[in-house]
Structures are given as C-alpha cells and as structure tokens.
Amino acid sequence: MAPARNMSMLSAKAAKSLAEEAAGLNGLHLRDLLADSARSRGLVYELGDLRVDLSRQKLRTETVAMLLELASQTGLAKKIEALFAGAHINRSEDRAVVHMAQRAEARVESAEYAGLAAFADTVRDSDITDVINIGIGGSDLGPAMVSAALASHADGPAVHYVSNVDPAHLHDVLAGCTPDTTLVITTSKTFTTAETMRNAALARDWLGGRGPGMAAVTAAPKVARDWGVAEDRIFDFDEGVGGRYSLWSAVGLPVMIGIGPDHFAGMLAGAAAMDEHFRTAPFEANLPVLMGMMRIWNRNFMGHAAHGIMPYDQRLHLLPAWA
C-alpha cells in the first residue's frame, strides 16, 4: 500500500517564512546578490566531479536553510526511505518505483545483465555495421540522449533512432543502411504501441529475412515472440520501470552496443552512486534534494511557472527532450 500522505507543503510552518522571504527578495536584482562573494561561495555544492551552483538563483544561504526545514517538516526523509524500501509511492499505478534496481551493483552481476552484455558483444564483434532502435517516448528519448552524450566513447556499429510514425523518418535512416549488415531493435514495453509497431513492420519488410534481422526489448516477451522475434533475441525488463527511467534497463541495449558493456556498466555505477548519495546524504549536502527544493522555491514561492533546462554541452542537446 502507498504510504500515508504527509501534511500539505504550503500549510507547513516553514512555508510562511519562505513566503515572507520571497516577498523580500522579489525587489532585489540578482546582480546585487552576486556582489556578495561569500554568498556565492556558500551556494556551490559538489559531489565528486559534479558541481551544482545555486548562486544564480534569487535566494540567500538563509533561504536554503528555510527550504530544507520545509523538506523536514513535510516528511521528505521518510518519503526517501519509503522510495528505497519499495513502498508503492507510484500512486497512479499503485506500484513501487524500481528503476534504481536497474543500475544497482546486484543487477550488473545478474544473469539477465550478463545475457544482455553477451549479446551486445556478439553484435560488436560481428559484421553488423548499423543498429536501428525503433521506439517512442522513453523507449527512444533516453537511449538517444545517452548515445549522443557519450558519442566520444562509441566504437561499435553506428546506432540510429527512429521514433516518428511518419515513414520518412525510417526511410531516411534505411537509405544509409544495408539489410545484410543491419540489426533492428524494436523497443516497446507492451509491444503493442501503434507507432512503434508500424515502423517495426516496415523495417521487417525492408529486411526481407536477410542479415542480422530483429531483436526486441519489452516487458511483454510473449507478445514479441508471437510477433515473430526469436526467443534468444528478446530482452525483457520489469513493467514497473517508467518510460523516462527505462534507459538503465534492457532499453539501453542500443547504447551498450554502441559504447560497449564496460562503458555502459560505468554509466550505471555513476547512477547508482548518485542513488546512494540521495539516500544517505544530509539534506544540506544532498544534490537531488537541493535541486528539487529549488523547483519548489521558484514555482511555489517566487511564482515562476516555467522551468528551463539548457545544456551546457552540445552532446547533451537531447537532455531537455528526455527530461
């Protein structure tokens, strides 16, 4: 069952103080706040080689303390504990949130992961020159973003992503590929997504039974088998894994093929380290908590309805679409 709801955030005692704080800061220009070098230094947080700089936010170091008090008063610590304990905090589906398990060390040491990595190595060691991933939403955006971000590590077949039901998208990719050396991966949780399955059928016709053929990544392996994908080329994942978080699972197969299992495992290890940091770090040093409270500060107290995500590196240009 889902954990009991905590008190409304805006009815918490700290919310009144934050509302007064926002009213006082609204009249200040950011350049006046930035003139205080001690403030700027105090709003920089680090974890390994990651740095979060909050000094460009319209707040004071005292504001951060108020926000963290709000987090405490509304039971955030218990909610984080419930998340990692497997409570059904996914209220809309009455499920636990399980994507953290996809990047945990135990999964990397599992037979499922070993099979996925073995298949990726087989593809990388073969004559396959191109891999086409057909998916939509989280089955496309996450892997495509990571493939672009880690392009400098790519040393396997060229990896392409097709998501638009407009056949021109698939046609333009196929125009540069050869059936004899192209592997098509159909990625769909249900293996019934209309746009994905239409493109998959077109790609199957194009392959014409030649070359490496097709593979499937799905939470419905029986449906994939019935559609015609060979048993040993179906890679499943937990249906409780949400679309935007699925790239850590078998959905990341095209990424693994492109950069290799070792680099993929390194990416998972980095994500697992952040999970552990989020679970254990005190709020005043907890990067996910601090960034989450910035959203609350800007939206609920400063009245900023829009939230901008602007990548600092061209290789992260697909991050906003995925996020």
Score class of each variant (00 low, 15 high):
A203T: 01
M197P: 01
D127E: 13
G24S: 13
D313S: 13
I296L: 15
I259L: 03
F84V: 06
A118R: 06
S72K: 15
N6Y: 06
A194P: 02
N300T: 06
F119L: 02
T63L: 12
R91M: 09
V165Y: 02
R103A: 07
L67C: 07
E109G: 02
K13T: 12
L202Y: 07
A65G: 09
E69N: 13
I136F: 03
L141V: 09
T122I: 01
V52N: 02
P179I: 12
D94R: 10
L10Q: 08
V165Q: 07
L268F: 13
H29Q: 12
S249W: 10
A144N: 12
G209C: 10
M100L: 11
A219P: 01
L50E: 09
E105I: 07
M293A: 10
P221W: 05
A175L: 07
V97Q: 04
A203G: 08
A148H: 14
P320K: 06
T192W: 00
L319Q: 05
S8Q: 12
M214W: 04
A144S: 14
T192F: 01
A144L: 10
D125I: 01
N286C: 08
Q102Y: 00
E284A: 14
A323T: 12
G303C: 06
D166N: 14
T61W: 01
A144M: 11
V52A: 14
H160Q: 04
L33A: 12
P221V: 03
M294H: 00
V131E: 02
A168Y: 08
A271H: 04
A216Q: 07
M9W: 08
E231M: 01
V184W: 01
N133S: 15
